[in-house]
């Protein structure tokens, strides 16, 4: 899963360039990026580029890891052995995405422990979508279909993002995300074609997850101060609104195909644009969730911090044992 760059609305955006960069180096860098060259870890890059990437990639990694929680919530209650196995595999994939992304961010000189520390102290953000609860089994379908579906929309262009390690991580991740999206949709299909109680679950899940999914693409372009810079540096390849529109256009017919209703009275097909017009997004809700006011934000952070703190003795033991081994090997 992926998140666009998240910031509190009132948080000042970082100055574009914090140090005076060498103009010749900067020009050469910009030319490479404009020519769609990949930037690699050892290459020179402006500080602001490095910072933006660390923020975005680590945020993305945190989203993968926190995203294991709402789905993990249903592993022990999955309704069949096949669904249980598929969900286990999916959540495992998400953890794997977290690993590749932490590794990609580490190539920029920030350690995984530093990034995790930033998450646990609330300095780093993760996708707002994971601060909503998974109430019924249909939510597992809705997450796969909508959230992984939105993630694909966001991530496919990132396979061509200018930073090489990030782009390569995205190639691996995208393949798995499309698998997740199909599996989620398949769950929804089964429910939508099931008993009245199952249909209700499916519609209710769509009602709750639709708008938060649209928010996953981030604030509208006019309120997304870093978009222009990020597009110019090819960190992003498309704006939030462009990707959001594509998601709506692809997803609405999928909902209709299984007899579910998208919870937006303003939704209409616009012949002239060849796209759906859709109603206004409640950005106040979005910014509240970014600030940490999502319904289960406290539970999510508590779960992550507890896992980390309760696991400290395990990590210490592993390090201590590795040190003993190295010591013994050296003595031989």
């Amino acid at each position: 899963m992926y998140t666009t760059e998240l910031k509190d609305k009132n948080q000042k955006s970082a100055p574009v360039t914090t140090v005076a960069e060498d103009p010749a180096k900067l020009a050469a860098f910009e030319a490479r990026v404009a020519a769609d060259d990949f930037i690699e870890p050892k290459d020179w890059m402006p500080e602001a580029y490095r910072k933006t990437l660390v923020r975005q990639i680590s945020q993305h990694a945190h989203s993968e890891v926190v995203g294991m929680l709402p789905e993990g919530n249903w592993i022990t209650r999955a309704p069949s052995l096949r669904r249980k196995a598929v969900l286990l595999a999916k959540v495992q994939d998400e953890g794997g995405h977290g690993l590749y992304l932490y590794a990609a961010a580490e190539t920029l000189g920030t350690s995984r422990d530093e990034m995790i520390e930033a998450l646990h102290t609330g300095r780093a953000k993760y996708s707002t979508i994971f601060n909503y609860p998974t109430l019924t089994w249909a939510d597992i379908g809705a997450i796969g279909w909508l959230v992984d579906g939105a993630a694909i929309m966001n991530q496919v262009p990132l396979q061509r993002t200018s930073y090489g390690p990030y782009a390569r991580a995205m190639v691996r991740i995208c393949k798995e995300e499309s698998f997740h999206q199909r599996q989620g949709y398949e769950i929804m299909m089964a429910l939508a074609g099931g008993s009245p109680e199952q249909k209700r679950m499916a519609q209710n899940a769509l009602d709750r997850w639709w708008w938060p999914s649209l928010m996953m693409f981030g604030p509208p372009d006019e309120n997304s101060p870093n978009t222009a810079q990020s597009v110019r540096w090819r960190i992003k390849r498309e704006t939030n609104d462009e990707i959001r529109q594509r998601f709506v256009d692809v997803t609405v017919p999928q909902a209709e195909a299984i007899g579910l209703k998208v919870p937006d009275p303003a939704l209409t097909w616009n012949e002239a644009r060849g796209s759906y017009d859709f109603g206004p997004i409640d950005w106040e809700e979005f910014y509240a969730v970014v600030r940490g006011e999502g319904l289960v934000a406290k539970e999510r952070m508590k779960a992550r911090v507890e896992a980390w703190e309760k696991g400290a003795w395990v990590r210490e033991a592993a390090n201590a044992h590795a040190a003993k081994r190295a010591h013994r090997a050296a003595a031989e």
Binding site: V65, M68, G72, I75, L88, V91, G98, L99, A307
Partner: peptide, 13 residues
């Protein structure tokens, strides 16, 4: 499966 998302480190998870 109860451990999922709660293990001491991501690799263990």
């Amino acid at each position: 499966g109860e451990w999922c998302g709660h293990a001491p480190m991501l690799e263990v998870d």
